[in-house]
């Protein structure tokens, strides 16, 4: 971003990317609000948070971390592939990313349904009879992972659109802003998880 900008009639790629970055800032602050709540509540109920976190399955959490980190790499590689005009490879990498995202969601589904089986879901009686700190922990857990899963879902839709567009050729070596921006979005989903994982699963 130099101080001296020349107006261009045609499509401005840098503007698109800058806009995406600023949008990501707002996403960071959206989750930031939840992290702030987490910090305050944890400071008040650290014992309860420890006990509650022990009930979460660290293995599932770790697997999901591996899925998301790997998918972040594949989506980053797909941009390199498109830049080098290797379309088939790009398609393969994008579908790999989608597959990993699906694995993440399946994992999440099993995790949540397991908790629901034990009567641990928002507003349940089991939860209401827990000590306040644990109740708050699970509330935050569902809110944070739920909102995150929603973002994973949106990311998957974006990736699917990219897949179709690469196939049709409207995303190509010359024009791949959508893929780049979707990639940025996908990395953000990853970033949030990088913080969520230790705070929710590893505090026991």
């Amino acid at each position: 971003m130099t101080d001296h900008t020349v107006h261009t009639e045609h499509f401005d790629k840098e503007a698109g990317k800058l806009g995406m970055w600023i949008f990501l800032f707002t996403e960071m602050f959206l989750f930031g609000g939840l992290f702030l709540v987490y910090a305050v509540m944890r400071a008040q109920y650290s014992e309860d948070f420890h006990t509650a976190a022990e009930e979460l399955n660290t293995f599932i959490g770790t697997m999901n971390t591996v899925f998301l980190l790997t998918s972040s790499m594949t989506v980053a590689m797909s941009i390199t592939a498109i830049q080098r005009n290797e379309r088939r490879l790009a398609l393969f990498l994008v579908s790999l990313t989608l597959l990993l995202a699906m694995l993440f969601m399946v994992d999440k589904y099993f995790e949540w349904s397991h908790e629901f089986e034990y009567g641990v879901y928002p507003g349940s009686d089991v939860l209401k009879n827990m000590p306040h700190g644990e109740l708050l922990f699970f509330g935050l857990y569902f809110m944070m992972t739920g909102l995150h899963a929603l973002h994973v879902f949106v990311g998957m839709i974006l990736l699917t659109i990219n897949f179709i567009r690469i196939r049709k050729g409207s995303i190509n070596q010359e024009n791949f802003l959508l893929l780049e921006n979707s990639g940025l979005y996908w990395h953000l989903v990853d970033l949030i998880w990088i913080f969520l994982f230790p705070l929710l699963y590893l505090v026991s």
Binding site: F25, T26, E27, F29, L30, F31, G32, G33
Partner: peptide
């Protein structure tokens, strides 16, 4: 950009 998301999440 930097403040509105906080009210959103709240």
């Amino acid at each position: 950009v930097l403040a509105t998301p906080i009210i959103g999440i709240t």
